[in-house]
């Protein structure tokens, strides 16, 4: 926080934090006697990732199409001009676009054209996708593959490549699980050792699962 003095270079940061906190709490309590009772009552507003923190582009099925000028302009502005530190491509479970791409019927209008990259993913991973009997899981898997493909396109973007080289820009792919509200790191991109939760490395036909000190290859 801008108005907090920085922690001293030497000495115990926790001690510093606790003593500063005491002072802060005393001040807040004096300034507004209801401040802490209100906090304790559970009515406290959430602190969100603040306005000004995330530059956002949202489109149907979070598709990154290399020649799409809309997405390209967003990337150019965010990476070259605003110099963001992270580019996060976020897909999600129960995606209508993924379901449409997995189906055989036309959606109609311009949507089929927009969803073509997903259709291509479906064709490229047909064997794996058709081996998944549960429709929801199949949609989740194509959403993951879509994020993976999108991250590869991001990494092939020259503005992003330059930023990676010049200042260590990080590109990453995540999936939002609507059923649990949790973000899952897919371990794709250039974040190196980030890895997926439970250390799952997905290949085209096999998953290498690391748990504890053991590793097992599960062929799907």
């Amino acid at each position: 926080m801008a108005d907090q003095p920085p922690p001293p270079d030497t000495g115990d940061a926790f001690e510093y934090a606790l003593s500063s906190n005491n002072a802060w709490a005393g001040y807040k309590g004096h300034q507004n006697p209801d401040f802490f009772p209100k906090l304790a009552s559970g009515q406290a507003p959430q602190i969100r990732l603040q306005p000004g923190d995330v530059f956002v582009h949202r489109n149907i099925a979070n598709i990154v199409s290399p020649t799409d000028i809309n997405t390209s302009a967003v990337i150019e502005y965010a990476v070259a001009h605003l110099k963001v530190k992270h580019v996060v491509l976020a897909g999600h479970t129960s995606c209508g676009g993924a379901a449409a791409a997995l189906g055989d019927s036309r959606v109609g209008g311009v949507l089929d054209t927009w969803l073509t990259p997903l259709k291509a993913i479906k064709a490229a991973h047909g064997e794996e996708l058709s081996s998944i009997s549960d429709a929801k899981e199949r949609a989740t898997r194509i959403a993951e593959l879509n994020v993976d493909a999108g991250v590869k396109i991001l990494l092939a973007n020259h503005v992003i490549q330059e930023a990676i080289q010049d200042r260590g820009l990080k590109v990453k792919g995540v999936i939002f699980d609507i059923g649990s509200g949790r973000l899952r790191d897919l371990g794709v991109g250039n974040t190196g050792d980030a890895g997926a939760p439970e250390g799952t490395v997905r290949g085209k036909h096999a998953m290498l699962v690391f748990r504890g000190t053991n590793a097992a290859m599960k062929v799907t």
């Binding site: 907090q4 920085p6 940061a13 510093y16 934090a17 500063s20 709490a25 304790a40």
Partner: peptide, 23 residues
């Protein structure tokens, strides 16, 4: 993990989550 120690009250984690936890 350092934040565990200063998160003794709700207010402390609020106050120091930016200045201490992520210096």
């Amino acid at each position: 993990a350092s934040n565990l120690n200063c998160a003794a009250t709700k207010s402390s984690s609020l106050t120091f989550s930016r200045s201490i936890q992520l210096p």
